[in-house]
Design a protein around this nucleic acid. Sequence first.
DNA 1: TATAGGCATACGAGCTTAATTTA
DNA 2: TAAATTAAGCTCGTATGCCT
Length: 788
Amino acid sequence: MSKIFFWLLDINHEVVDGDVEVRMWGKNDGGESVLLVAKSTPYFYVLPRGDDAEAAASKIRALKGEYGELVDVEVSEKKYFGRPVKTVKVSCKTPEGVDRISRILCKAPYVRECLEDDIRPAARYIIDNSLNPSGWYEVEVKNISKHGFQVDRAYEAVEAPTPIGRLHPPDLRVLAFSTICFSERGSPDPDKDPILVVSMSAGDGGTEHYTVDGDGDGGVLERFVSRLRQFDPDIVVGWGQNSFDWDYMLARSKKVGVKLSVDRCGGEPHRSTFGHISITGRANIDLANIADDMPEVKVEGLGGLAEFLGVARKDEVDRFQDVETGRLWKSSDGRRRLIEYSKFRSEVTLKLLNLLIDYAIQMSHLTGLPLDQVAAAAVGFRVDSYLMAQAHRFNELIPKRTEQPYIPYQGAIVMEPKPGIHEDVAVLDFTSMYPNLMIMYNISPDSFIDSSETSAEFFTAPEVGFRFRKDPPGFYKKVLQDLINVRREIRGKLSGAAKDSVEYKVLRERERVVKIVTNACYGYAGWVGARWYVREVAESVAAFGRASLRKVIGIAKDLGLQVIYGDTDSIFVKYEPEKVEELLSIVGREMSMEIKVEKVYSRVLFTEAKKKYAGLLSDGTLDIVGLEVVRGDWSNIAKTVQERILEIILREGSVDKAVEYLRQLIRDLRAGKIPVSELAVWKTLTKPVESYQVKAPHVEVARMMLEDGWRLKPGDKVGFVIVKGPGRLYQKARPVMKVTPDKVDLEYYVGNQVLPAAMRILGVLGVDEGVVSASSGSAGLSEYMGRG
DNA sequence: TATAGGCATACGAGCTTAATTTA
DNA sequence: TAAATTAAGCTCGTATGCCT
């Protein structure tokens, strides 16, 4: 026996000779790949009807003869929504046994409910042993045979791994790949269209590529598999491979008789937990999944992400479309360009992974989801996973996800802004308002008092009247307090770490994910799919939030501060430093909440609309919120014009100049001086084209593009331009790349894009739309100040 | 295998009403 | 002059993407 250090990368289970074997795949501190095997017995809990768990247990025990897979039955003391309960823990030989026995038992008259039967062995092992994937452990092991698995070492775990505080991730071997398939028209069809090129970039440098030859793409796949196995990556990264490449390669490999044995057991990739593709023993990461939860990346595709992170220009990364590949492949020059393109994409993919991996590792470590799953899991399931691990810590039973109707509830307050231009405005924000309210008022499913209960000391939510026991601390309160403490600890360590150290990088990402998970808890609590969903909880948090905002507005007004706007957890006030200081201290004292000066505008413009404003920050940057400039569904020209107008007005204070600029631009537009690409409007296809209820420009254009052989799926953006002609807008919309300048309906762009965007701003300042085309008036900014 | 609600905005669709044309 | 036709105006619903 010996001890090893082990970093947990992936985990799965297998039934071997009728027993469940949990397989942990990872790395040791020497950078070797390690398989760690542990025996495990699946189980679930039975919550008896009434409180006689012993009686229920013996009834279940009596079934042992009838059901061979039932191995152990014992009474177990747990808590369920905070209340102590006696349950029966039923252990079975296999997960299939758990499925079968729990299905039978939940119908038994003495059973109220079966719980935790939906937790699979790998997750079970992680939860029960308080493991955090993507983290370091020390573990006592015995050497075992490698059984042909592709690892450097194989061990049996003598005991459960114990976490050690090491921060540095191990040396992970990363392999990026990119494929190009043949297509002349329509999506490539794996039945007939071969894979033309596969490029692979390895973390230790170098990009290789394999191309189709006279014998088809069998050789490409063979070389792909052999290169992958030879390099033996821990992480396989690509763009969109969960929804395309793997399925395509699997289909092709079947066709040409090549086994895609790329996992560490010699098996093929398979579809797994979150609809993603799993490669046993490795982490298969689809960057498209990671990009999906980066809302700040506005431009779609690998190129959009690359450009956002400053790795490459979008037009370089997304040089060709699927439908072009067939044509290109036919000329030697086109072939050369496609190969170069494929290699470039695989290199970009590798660079992006290196930038994003620390975040993914930390998210995996905190939430308890293995690296490949965490990338694919939606926010709700990440929080779910985190809470399940926490429940185990508190000896709480994990509730089942239940089907229930969705009933909306009232949310936050948004104040009516005072339109016009204001000078010296401070934005004050509550820090972590919702998490703090949940802690302060102990708002949690297990502290929620239903109408029958009266005795306890409780908090009552304003407006909605729901009540929550003051003691003991509820599940959400304990979890959130923990998260906040953890974050504080990380911050302490961060302040002591050297800025260029690995430690600093790791801690910074860890702090970020702790913050993200903390802030996701309120939304999670209001999600019908949540295991810990109680609508009244979310509703009460929102109600306390409204009361808090009202209260702070009242205090501000009492201090003589002019309140200009407010939304959810922020108020905008005329900046008078002493009064603001006073406000902060009163809020701390009387409300036990923290409020901070988030930013100060030297000049800020509000429209009549909520959630739309623009201001000049004290450091001189222009901050634009909610207006067309920051929306992806307006043409570039409209956004450019609006931004320029805001600059002229906020920086230079000249409405006249802004109007003059607008007039000139409209003249240029009408003269055809604006490139067509600047006129395109991009909208997301949110569902398949056939399921739209109404005719809309982007949907009609998507239809045309599909007709032309483009591969368009929900989530893709469609760019269109309005051309001259009769009829509805959707009849005049064309794909942007097919429109020539002479066809453009310029008056649409004047009247429906540029003017609305410009007048949104100028209208507030009293400029009449007619004035824009009439001769110049004369007005300085001073005339428009202090309105409202 | 969907974190929440609040909000603005554009346009289609269907209807009513006003304006215009036609018998 | 009344009926028929067309245009304009209104309301409502759908769709998207933002804010906190």
